[in-house]
Every structure is written in C-alpha cells, then in structure tokens.
C-alpha cells in the first residue's frame, strides 16, 4: 500500500476515534486553565476597574501592556519558574496519556470508554516514561550536536557572504534542519512506543533496538509518512491563521467567537497528534504483516 493510501487509512481511523481527541483537548484545556487562573485574576484585578478595560477589549493596548509589565516585572522570574514547572508536569501528563492513545489505536477494537483509556494510560506509563528518558540524549545529540554541525557548516558557507540572500536562505535551512532532525528522533521513539504496545513488551531497550532495525530498513517510507502527517498539521495551522486574521474583535460575543475558534484549533492539533500515531501504527501493521506473509511464503 502506498504511503498516501496508508495516510488516508490512518486519517479515517483517527476520525473514528474522535472522542480520543476530545478527551485530550479537555485535559489540555483544564491543565492550562489551572495555570492561567491566577494570572487571569491578576489581569482582571489590573484592568477591570480601569478605563483601560475598554481599549484592551478591542486591541493590544501598548500602554496597558506597559502598565502590566511594570507592575509584574519583579515577579517575572517566579512566573517563568512556574511556567517551566508547569511544562514539566504537562510532559509527564502527556507521557501518561500517550499510553491511552496508542493503546486504543494499536490494539484490536474493544471497550472504548474512559476506563479502558485510563487503564492503558496506567498500563504503559512506566514503559513510556523510560522511553521519554531514553529519548533525551537523542534529542540532545540531534539539536546540540548534529544541528550545531549543520549550523556551523551553513555559517561557514555564509561567513563571507557579500549579500543578504545567502544568509536568509541559510537561516531558513538551519530552522528546517532543526525541525527535521527533531522530527526524526520523535518518529523513531513513536515506533518504539508502538512496538511496546503492539508486542506487549516491557523491555524498552530491546524494543528500541528492534525499532532501529525496523525503521532503518524502511526509513524513507516511514519518514515520508511522518512528513505527510506534519504537512497536515501545517495546513491545519494555516487554515486557523487565515480565519483568525479576518475574525472581527471588539465585543464580548466576538471575544467568545474567537475563543471558540482557537479551541477548535487546539482540538485540531490534538487530532493531528493522534494522526501521527495512527499513521505510524498503520505503517507498522502493514510492514509487519508483509514481513509475516513473506516468512509464510518462504
């Protein structure tokens, strides 16, 4: 099956698992709300009893932003630390949720309620946490070593540039290289997680070795499929931005409309995230069944 057909199949199975996306969106929303609530109270306290409340409704009022920044400037380090802690906690939550997502997508249809979902979350949490920890050095190598080498090479090529274009192109290539490198590492560890679920294995290192051989043999097909899912995400984002830029603002109902559109985009992102897993699972299934048939034929 071509990767396009595989992608279409994965899209279908993701669409059928709509409640998964909604579940992830709800958790993402609630988690963010917990973090934002104190800030929202502060903003409310700062703006709601001021005439500035009228102007901030229609635009980003630079004077108001100035006022806000002068008032909270000294709290900025604490806020940043809180944000970092929140991101870390969210990453743990995602490690937990990934078990449910891949568990639901990767196993034969069965019970599909929250209980089954969270059962899978718990079942795979420690395995996926080990995968996440194992991935850290690979990300560091990709971003800290390989990307630096690429950046150094591009820097050397443009160091003596006499015009601006080579520098702009190099800057774009640097960014692209970073995205692609991180994508490759991410894809590889997605397949490790899928392998752990589909094979029921508990041994992360063994699965990683197996995945290395699996992906290594069919890298470009796997990567092509991953990039297709990435393209879907880019298209989704462009669609969101196109609509967002023409949405009018300035009245409470319009504020609500914009917020709803933003949340639809977040939901779309969750869908896109599941689509990545679904396409990888379809790919793994096809390749494994192909391999089994080959063995049988032999």
């Amino acid at each position: 099956m071509s990767i396009l057909k595989l992608f279409a199949k994965a899209f279908g199975s993701t669409a059928r698992q709509g409640r998964l996306a909604r579940r992830l969106w709800a958790l993402n929303f609630l988690f963010s709300l917990l973090i934002i609530a104190p800030l929202a109270v502060a903003i409310h306290g700062h703006a709601s009893h001021s005439l500035a409340a009228d102007s901030v409704l229609v635009r980003l009022d630079v004077h108001w932003l100035t006022d806000l920044s002068t008032r909270y400037m000294e709290s900025a380090p604490m806020l940043l630390a809180l944000l970092a802690a929140a991101v870390l906690a969210y990453l743990l939550l995602v490690v937990f949720l990934n078990g449910g997502v891949i568990g639901r997508l990767g196993r034969p249809p069965g019970a599909d309620g929250p209980a089954a979902f969270f059962h899978d979350c718990g079942l795979y949490f420690w395995r996926f946490l080990r995968v996440a920890l194992l991935s850290i050095p690979f990300y560091l190598i990709a971003a800290g070593v390989i990307h630096r080498l690429v950046a150094a090479l591009l820097g050397a090529l443009t160091r003596r540039a006499a015009t601006e274009w080579p520098v702009i192109i190099a800057s774009g290539l640097r960014l692209l290289a970073l995205v692609l490198l991180l994508g490759i590492v991410s894809m590889f560890f997605d397949y490790v997680k899928i392998g752990l679920v589909t094979r029921g294995s508990r041994k992360v290192l063994k699965e990683a070795w197996r995945t290395l051989k699996f992906v290594g043999r069919r890298f470009f097909r796997a990567w092509g499929l991953y990039l297709l899912a990435g393209l879907a995400f880019v298209l989704l984002t462009l669609a969101y931005l196109e609509v967002a830029r023409v949405l009018p603002k300035g009245t409470p109902p319009l504020v609500l409309a914009v917020f709803v559109w933003q949340q639809m985009y977040v939901l779309g992102r969750q869908f896109s995230r599941i689509l990545f897993f679904a396409s990888e699972i379809e790919f793994a299934r096809q390749e494994m069944s192909g391999a089994r048939e080959k063995i049988r034929e032999e």
């Binding site: 973090i35 934002i36 409704l57 409470p252 977040v266």
Partner: peptide, 27 residues
C-alpha cells in the same frame, strides 16, 4: 468591566495550550 480582561486571559490560555502542545510533541 470584565470583557477586556477575559479576552486577554483567554488569549493567554490559548497561547499556553499551544506552548504545552509544542513541548509535548517530542514526547
């Protein structure tokens, strides 16, 4: 008047949701 504050709280919420999703894309 809460609408303006709500608008920016909602925006912050949206930006944070996206930040969290970006961070978790690699996990």
């Amino acid at each position: 008047k809460s609408a303006g504050a709500l608008r920016w709280s909602a925006k912050l919420q949206f930006w944070l949701q996206n930040l969290l999703q970006f961070a978790s894309a690699l996990i």
